[in-house]
Design a protein around this nucleic acid. Structure first.
Lengths: 244, 244
DNA sequence: CGCGGTATTGAAACGCATCAAAACCCGTGG
DNA sequence: CCACGGGTTTTGATGCGTTTCAATACCGCG
């Protein structure tokens, strides 16, 4: 019946959870893993494209993303969520949607707060996650503000590759990246057509390809150059200030 | 000797601090205000344009902003900091700079962590701040991704006005907003010239003015329209999906 | 009065959006 | 097995918003 990848079931116990080493509860020592169960209020499996309405959860398998609609019917992708990420719906109108078939653990906010109140390390882990989110948004803001289309695409691909790499979901040559070009475009403030052209250029130059849900990095150095600033010369701030 | 606004001295005691109601320590009850002193490692006064190297501080008076340089010598403003804001330098190369003459309380990270470990409410206050930062960045990301120049300027002015309003630093008609056009431009991914043209248009249409460090809102409704999406018709997502 | 930083204005060039259409891919059903 | 259909990717042509470059005007201050 499922014409799609099967929905990965979750492990019964948090102790065996494959993503916990990268997730909010990574700081909980083995001896107290049992307490996590009291914070979990359930699990859920969703299909690609479905909206997710749970207000806090940690993604176990699959990708998701947060986005907002603009009054003229376009959308802005705010962030991509990978396995192990804690996702928290914010009060503002942002939506969370499964990008692939996905499964996750729903958390109970009040019980999570209790736990964090008793365990400062957990509170710090939570804060670290927020800080990482913020750092990522700052980078992406810089992308949209100051990079051209090719640089934005290159930068986002490198960001995703790095995040996957850190949690063992990629090797140096590439990774499973199930994004459509429309996701890229909506995350980077580009039209789908232009995102396509940027990808086409990268492919033609043998730098990287994104195809059938897989990212291949053919020339990492060139990709990093592209994500840096392609601009000419690059004298550096000081030199530029002193020049003239 | 100072050709600039005087550097506002800080109050001796946190109990009397004018910005504490809006700051990290707002949650500390009067009876325990004394404990805050142990977290403060000093105060500092800086002039407009000076870089700030302290890693965590709460701004007491004046504005600051965080920014990164791009290899080609431009800059991206990541966030503006207002009195009461907790500012934390991140590991990435972002700089923090005083936008006006400013004064702030420097905090000791380890002692702050201790305090948060003992006081879950304080930890929550910290997390709230991070969450607000993130929400603001998301909004700005949406701006850069999907709004045109006029919309970006309008949106940022409204954001700043709202933040100032909430802490009693503005009235409905306007506020002190010491930004140069270059700050606006660098925050919004625009050239200075174009930011100027956007402001000029707003002025000509009697919507708002930004002049000599003061923002005047002449027609809030029009300003909000401009910050929404100026696009035509605005059928709404559903209507648009169903159309055709 | 003159200077440096800031704001303003104009003209030309460019990157990206938009519109339109074709190619492609894959699952579905005849 | 092949034709069909919807979603996605690709390609091309045209227009607009913004950048860039170049001057000029402005303003507070020494």
């Amino acid at each position: 019946m499922s014409r799609n990848a099967s929905l990965t079931p979750l492990p019964g116990s948090c102790a065996a959870c494959a993503v916990r080493p990268f997730a909010l509860f990574r700081v909980v020592p083995q001896a107290r893993v049992g307490e996590i169960a009291r914070v979990r209020s359930g699990v859920r499996l969703v299909r690609a494209g479905e909206a997710i309405h749970d207000s806090i959860f940690t993604l176990y398998a699959g990708w998701a993303f947060s986005w907002t609609a603009t009054p003229d019917g376009r959308r802005q992708v705010l962030d991509f969520h990978l396995p192990g990420d804690l996702v928290e719906r914010s009060e503002d109108g942002a939506e969370v949607e499964a990008l692939t078939d996905a499964s996750f653990c729903i958390l109970a906010r009040d019980r999570l707060c209790d736990f964090m109140g008793r365990d400062p390390g957990l509170a710090m882990s939570y804060a670290e996650g927020l800080t990482r989110d913020r750092a990522r948004l700052r980078e992406r803001l810089t992308s949209l503000g100051r990079r051209d289309a090719a640089g934005r695409v290159a930068h986002l691909l490198l960001e995703l590759h790095g995040r996957l790499m850190r949690r063992g979901g990629a090797d140096a040559r590439g990774a499973a990246v199930p994004l459509k070009q429309a996701h890229l475009a909506d995350a980077l403030g580009l039209s789908v057509e232009h995102a396509n052209r940027a990808l086409a250029a990268m492919r033609k130059d043998g730098i990287a390809t994104l195809n059938k849900g897989r990212l291949e990095i053919l020339d990492r150095e060139a990709l990093e150059d592209m994500a840096g600033w392609s601009g000419p010369a690059q004298p550096g701030v000081l030199a530029r200030t002193l020049a003239v």
